[in-house]
Amino acid sequence: MTQTLPQELEQLEATEFDAGLVFSGAASGNMVRGYSSPCSCTPVADSTYIFHESARDVVVWFMNKLDPLYLYGPAGCGKSSLVKQLAARLNYPVFNVTAHGRMEFSDLTGHVSLQNGNMVYQYGPLALAMRYGALFIMDEVDLLPPEVAAGLNGILEGQPLCLPENGGELIHPSPMFRFACTANTNGNGDDTGLYQGTLRMNLAWQDRFMVSSVDYPAADVEKALLARLFPTLPDSITSKMVDFANEVRGLFMGTSDTSINTIEATLSTRTLIRWADLTLKFQPLAHQGIQPLSYALDRALAFRTAPSTRAMLHELVQRVFPVENVSLGE
């Protein structure tokens, strides 16, 4: 007989790991709590994933009973994947929700539904995470409606969750329960114009979090990542791809030394990986006189931009890759 999700979560057994062995491969003597085995809600550990400096804060957060965690940083820098990959190595179950302007509190806690002719209360992701000791991640939290954020105040302080629709049931948080948020802004609104729709969060609400900034990985980290994922791609190409990505990010953030105005899109780590992957897949086009790098860039990023930006990106490709004008050397 197939187990229900609550039954599966109830059977999880907490254990302790050496944090050094889990996260760096070298014993440290510092212990971190997790679970002895994964479940269907546990993220899959990516063996190619490379942790960058921001992981330190999240590791300390996992190791200690600290305030809820608020991670903010530019689009596509890997905020959610950072937390999930750490959770995966601890066999932590994860409930991941993306905030939006029409979200209601019951979307998190649960609601009554009709099942086989009976009215049954279905627990939401937050209620399940609290009861069974999972990690609850709310992405894009700076899009969360204020009334829903206010409803979370007690939860953020460690208080039980009350479910009026289920007879006033109280769910006391498991000692293993963790609450994390990710956002593009630090909660004070967007003064850059890059993230339309984000809200300024209530100061008292922000005060309940430990805050950590996440940026794009260092160049050497991204180069090592591309080398690991795409070993057939020449080092000279992967190195220049990362340099290109960082120049595009500078243009996006308005920190570039060039006279070009800011552009409307950025080249995140995930887009960088997509670009490298497509460059290899479109390599046969080189025999038709089509540059795989430019062709792949359109499909990875440039087609999402204005025509003027796309033209500028292609000019930048020609400048960064002067030798690889047609092919990758095949």
Rank of each mutant, 00 (worst) to 15 (best):
Arg310Met: 15
Met201Ile: 11
Tyr35Glu: 03
Ser212Arg: 02
Phe303Lys: 12
Gln288Tyr: 14
Ala88Arg: 06
Arg102Gln: 09
Leu328Ser: 07
Gly154Asp: 13
Ala19Arg: 13
Glu10Asp: 14
His100Ala: 02
Val242Met: 05
Leu226Phe: 13
Leu251Phe: 07
Pro74Gln: 04
Ser259Arg: 15
Asp257Gln: 12
Met63Arg: 12
Glu324Ala: 14
Pro6Met: 08
Phe105Arg: 07
Gln7Lys: 09
Val148Ile: 09
Ser54Asp: 02
His172Arg: 14
Cys162Trp: 04
Phe252Cys: 01
Arg131Gly: 02
Ala99Ile: 04
Ala127Asp: 00
Ile155Asn: 00
Gln7Ala: 14
Arg270Thr: 11
Leu128Ala: 02
Ala88His: 08
Glu169Val: 13
Arg274Ala: 11
Val120Asp: 05
Leu90Trp: 07
Asn261Gln: 15
Ala300Ser: 12
His287Tyr: 12
Met210Asn: 08
Gly289Pro: 04
Trp275His: 04
Gly78Leu: 05
Phe136Tyr: 13
Met1Arg: 09
Ser37Asn: 15
Val148Ala: 03
Pro173Gln: 07
Leu229Ile: 10
Cys77Thr: 04
Met312Pro: 04
Asp191Cys: 06
Met63Glu: 13
Gly193Ala: 07
Thr15Phe: 08
Val59His: 05
Ser174Thr: 09
Thr98Met: 08
Leu5Asn: 01
Tyr49His: 08
Ile171Pro: 00
Phe62Leu: 12
Glu324Lys: 10
Leu71Tyr: 02
Gly76Lys: 03
Ala224Asp: 13
Leu316Glu: 01
Glu315Asn: 15
Val97Glu: 01
Gly133Ser: 07
Leu229Arg: 15
Asp235Lys: 14
Leu272Ser: 02
Thr232Arg: 15
Phe179Asp: 01
Lys223Cys: 10
Glu10His: 10
Glu8Tyr: 12
Gly78Arg: 02
Val326His: 11
Val211Ile: 09
Ser28Gly: 06
Asp190Pro: 00
Ser236Cys: 09
Tyr195Lys: 01
Asn261Leu: 13
Ala227Asn: 14
Cys77Asn: 00
Pro284Met: 03
Arg208Glu: 10
Pro43Arg: 11
Phe244Leu: 12
Asp191Ser: 09
Val317Ser: 03
Gln85Gly: 06
Asp67Arg: 15
Gly329Leu: 08
Cys41Glu: 11
Cys41Tyr: 05
Pro6Ala: 07
Asn118Thr: 08
Phe17Trp: 11
Arg270Ser: 14
Val214Arg: 01
Met119Lys: 12
Leu313Arg: 03
Leu203His: 13
Leu82Met: 06
Thr4Met: 06
Pro146Trp: 11
Val221Glu: 00
Ile263Cys: 02
Phe303Ser: 10
Pro175Val: 14
Gln318Val: 10
Leu233Pro: 04
Asn118Pro: 01
Met103Gly: 03
Ala296Cys: 02
Arg56Ala: 13
Pro175His: 13
Gln159Ala: 12
Trp205Gly: 01
Leu90Asp: 06
Gln3Val: 08
Met312Lys: 12
Gly117Asp: 06
Ser236His: 10
Glu247Asn: 00
Thr309Val: 15
Met63Ala: 14
Ala134Arg: 02
Thr198His: 06
Pro160His: 07
Cys181Gln: 01
Glu13Asn: 07
Pro307His: 15
Glu13Ile: 14
Ala286Ser: 14
Asp107Ala: 11
Leu86Glu: 08
Gly329Cys: 09
His100Met: 03
Ala27Phe: 03
